[in-house]
Amino acid sequence: MPIALLSDIHANLEAFEACRRHARAAGATRLALLGDFVGYGADPAAVVERVMQLQAEGALVLKGNHDDAVARPARYMNDLAAEAMEFSRAQLSTVQKEFLAALPLVAHEGAVCFAHASAASPERWDYLDGPSAAWRCAEAAGTRLTFCGHVHRQMLWFEARPGGMSPFQPVPSSPIPLRGNRRWVAVVGSVGQPRDRRPAAGYALFDPAVGALTFHRVPYDHLAAAQKIRAAGLSLQLARRVEAGI
């Protein structure tokens, strides 16, 4: 039962739909949506509507820091993020806001842990930005495998020696067996706002039957998504980020 791992959609409906189509074609029968559905992009309401529907159909849905900031304005946000957050807040219905507010931060299923940022103190929204952060996450998760988002770059952390994590930059579309009696922490990348200078949407697909994880990059009509951001009157810089993957 291959499971598609989508995170950091950020109100980018075009990227979200493209990744779902890609995952379906690749055989995914389940979805795990790891949070940050709103912020930055032009379609927060449409994205959240779809997420609610997918949850009703069995998708695993977690809360991200942007989703959290809808109800509780966050002081750490920069001007750009704060402006986009104002926009998202104005677009969302009360039901949608309540849905976001009620989402869990972490989920466990068998040998797998899911989180938006880190399984360690998830409410602090720490970035997995180094070996020690990755290890804290793996240890707090308590599972062999942890899947997260939050950092908008795909990365696979693996336990290279007991208690020590090493980063591996995955090659898109190349399945990686997550074998052995070691911890693995995968950062699945961002659907709606990749930041590695490549505009293609990022997500990952885990196949429990063979224990393999495949990172994907999906080209989509990012120019249309950027145009919508301009049309919505949001900062031009936000459109530029989607266009250039920055």
Binding site: F158, A160, R161, G164, S166, F168, I176, G180
Partner: peptide, 11 residues
């Protein structure tokens, strides 16, 4: 192999 994490890198 460039497409797999190097399990021996730290050994």
């Amino acid at each position: 192999h460039a497409r797999f994490p190097d399990l021996l890198a730290e050994e």
